[in-house]
């Protein structure tokens, strides 16, 4: 059928085909933009709403039906957050815990990953597998015994206990990731450095670590992000107001659910998100690459 069609209308058919193709092309384009617009507005809405509502005064947050744009823009919620609550203490605690856990897992995990990547010795395969299993252990399984130790060692209600517990979850991640980054760097570079008189350790510090730096940075971001968001250990290990991390602090406000707290909650939510977004912007490209290259832990 197509052959007779093209044969009989030699002149008009190609043009008509091209027009058809153009229409189809335009339709596909329009469809793409429509879908993207829908996806972006539906997915982005909650965050947009959070930001918008954090600038509404107390009364407007409880208006029925809700106002869309704030009728009065105010920073009152943010002011209340700093004046009426321990937000700054929570923030500092979270920084200490996330920073400590990230530092520990980068140093310990970096050394371990180097060993796993560069040497062959008995039990090495088994060790990587064990690390992977550790990575899959449910938090609720580990939190019970860790809580028992924390109580017995008198570490309850300390930030130190949170740093250690978070390291348990970020270390396997660091090991697996950094091993693959180290694997990507040819051993020959280190060998030539060693021929030039470096010791193995110097070769590692001067050649391999700088080359693997992008990978190390993204592992650091993951670890930091994990510890920054961690909630269960904080909930179980700490109790006093001065030791709360941000997620726990904010969560206790939700629990109270009193009529004036939404504004502060939303303002707090915005401020907790900012460091994460900054971090993301910092390492955006590597983050996506790292995520797609290997299996990673959620959060």
């Amino acid at each position: 059928m197509t052959t007779t069609f093209t044969a009989s209308t030699t002149d008009a058919a190609p043009r008509r085909n091209r027009e058809m193709a153009d229409v189809q092309y335009l339709a596909t384009r329009a469809m793409t933009y429509l879908l993207v617009l829908t996806a972006v507005s539906v997915i982005g809405f909650p965050l947009f709403w959070m930001l918008l509502c954090s600038f509404k005064p107390g009364g407007e947050l409880y208006a029925v039906p809700p106002t869309f744009l704030p009728q009065i823009w105010t920073l009152q919620n943010y002011r209340d957050l700093f004046v009426q609550t321990n937000f700054l203490t929570y923030f500092a605690n979270s920084l200490i815990v996330a920073g400590g856990a990230t530092f520990a897992s980068l140093v310990i995990g970096g050394l371990g990953a180097y060993s796993l990547s560069r040497f062959k010795f008995f039990g090495i395969g088994a060790f990587s597998n064990i690390a992977l299993v550790c990575y899959m252990l449910p938090e609720v399984l580990i939190v019970l015994p860790l809580y028992i130790y924390v109580v017995k060692l008198g570490l309850a209600d300390t930030l130190f206990s949170l740093i250690v517990a978070n390291t348990a979850f970020t270390l396997p991640l660091a090991l697996w990731f950094m091993r693959s980054y180290f694997n990507a760097i040819p051993v020959s570079l280190e060998e030539s450095a060693m021929i030039d008189g470096c010791t193995r350790l110097q070769a590692m510090m001067k050649i391999t670590v700088p080359l693997a730096l992008p990978g190390i940075v993204s592992v650091g971001v993951f670890s930091f992000n994990h510890a920054w968001n961690e909630f269960l250990f904080a909930l179980v290990f700490t109790s006093s107001e001065t030791k709360k991390t941000l997620p726990l602090g904010l969560a206790t406000w939700i629990g109270q659910d009193n009529i004036y707290s939404w504004g502060m909650l939303l303002a707090g939510a915005v401020l907790v998100t900012i460091p994460v977004v900054l971090f993301y912007l910092l390492v955006q490209r590597k983050l996506v690459v790292g995520l797609s290259e290997g299996g990673t832990k959620g959060e």
């Binding site: 982005g44 998100t273 994460v276």
Partner: peptide, 23 residues
């Protein structure tokens, strides 16, 4: 568009929960 679509993943869980509970 990609940044907005990937954003929920970066938002701390507690923030996601508070926003949705308000909504």
């Amino acid at each position: 568009a990609r940044a907005i679509i990937l954003a929920p993943y970066l938002v701390p869980t507690v923030v996601a929960v508070m926003t949705w509970r308000y909504m």
